[in-house]
């Protein structure tokens, strides 16, 4: 049986972390499955476990100066019920897992799990979210795309934990989210796509595109997005060029849930549909 900690506040948690290499346990919906053993046996953890979902500091949602700060231990259900959370976030969260799991699973956990199929990630990538990392001696913010390094890999260092996610509030005139799952509920995604666009009287101002479960980490390219914006502004939309750009970025695998070919084709088709049916409309607004 390993050591377990249940700190009362963040300060205590960070102090404990400073001296103990811990497995940080938020909702545990992924950890408990990964560490599961024979029914009746306690799931196995090699390192000391630190429970954090009780930490009040990690359960708050605030908005300040156009910046939304979401506590890492907020459950998906809490976020769905929270008035400060924008509707397009909720659209993503509502399609994750099942009601029972959404009552347990946390947004911080989904990020730190760094699964290619992590369903909050495409949204957070598209919104340029920053991950707040804290240790007993410092607090840093990292862009999520930097924080997540690969399958199950993040820049989280010993002594640190993710305490919050900061998302600049921005408004979009077109929002498309598509999770392509194995079934209509309690499903993992085969792939997911989020497309966001903002335009004003002067025309299209911004485009954000992100794809989940089709590469080791979320696929998003600011360069490609800017090319699309330029093309649309100049009225010289070159779909095949865009497809080429994204085809090199989208590198899915075949596994027990879907095939590489399907994932890739579905992504490209969702992308093209978004460009033709959402972006083109933004331009003629």
């Amino acid at each position: 049986m390993v050591e377990a900690y249940k700190p009362n506040d963040l300060k205590e948690a960070l102090e404990l972390l400073a001296f103990n290499d811990c497995t940080i346990f938020a909702g545990g919906t992924d950890l408990m499955v990964k560490r599961k053993r024979w029914s009746g046996l306690v799931p196995s953890f090699e390192k000391p476990v630190m429970f954090i979902s009780q930490l009040q500091e990690l359960r708050e949602v605030t908005e300040d100066n156009g910046m939304l700060t979401i506590g890492a231990a907020c459950t998906l259900s809490e976020l769905i019920d929270n008035e400060l959370i924008p509707e397009h976030f909720k659209t993503v969260f509502r399609q994750m897992a099942s009601p029972g799991i959404r009552n347990i699973a946390t947004i911080g956990g989904n990020i730190c799990n760094a699964s290619p199929a992590g369903e909050s990630l495409p949204l957070l990538y598209a919104l340029d979210a920053e991950v707040v990392l804290q240790s007993s001696c410092r607090k840093v913010e990292l862009p999520i795309a930097e924080f997540v390094q690969g399958v199950g890999k993040t820049l989280l260092k010993s002594g640190e934990m993710v305490t919050a996610i900061k998302v600049p509030k921005s408004s979009f005139t077109s929002i498309t989210y598509r999770k392509v799952g194995t079934r209509k509920s309690t499903a993992l995604s085969k792939l997911s796509f989020i497309g966001l666009a903002a335009s004003d009287e002067e025309g299209l101002q911004d485009v954000r595109l992100a794809f989940g479960a089709v590469a080791p980490t979320v696929v998003r390219s600011r360069d490609a997005e800017e090319d699309i914006i330029d093309m649309l502004k100049l009225g010289s939309l070159d779909i095949s060029q865009i497809i080429d750009d994204y085809s090199t970025l989208i590198k899915p695998i075949s596994d027990q849930r879907s095939t590489a070919l399907y994932r890739k084709k579905a992504c490209i088709r969702l992308l093209v549909d978004f460009i033709i049916n959402s972006l083109a409309r933004e331009v003629v607004r």
């Binding site: 499955v33 079934r183 209509k184 509920s185 309690t186 993992l188 027990q256 849930r257």
Partner: peptide
Amino acid sequence: MENLQGRFRQRTSTDYIIPTAMD
């Protein structure tokens, strides 16, 4: 449910999918 080299690919309840009420 596919079998690759004698091993089922879908061998957990997460991967072998049956309908839910929403399907």
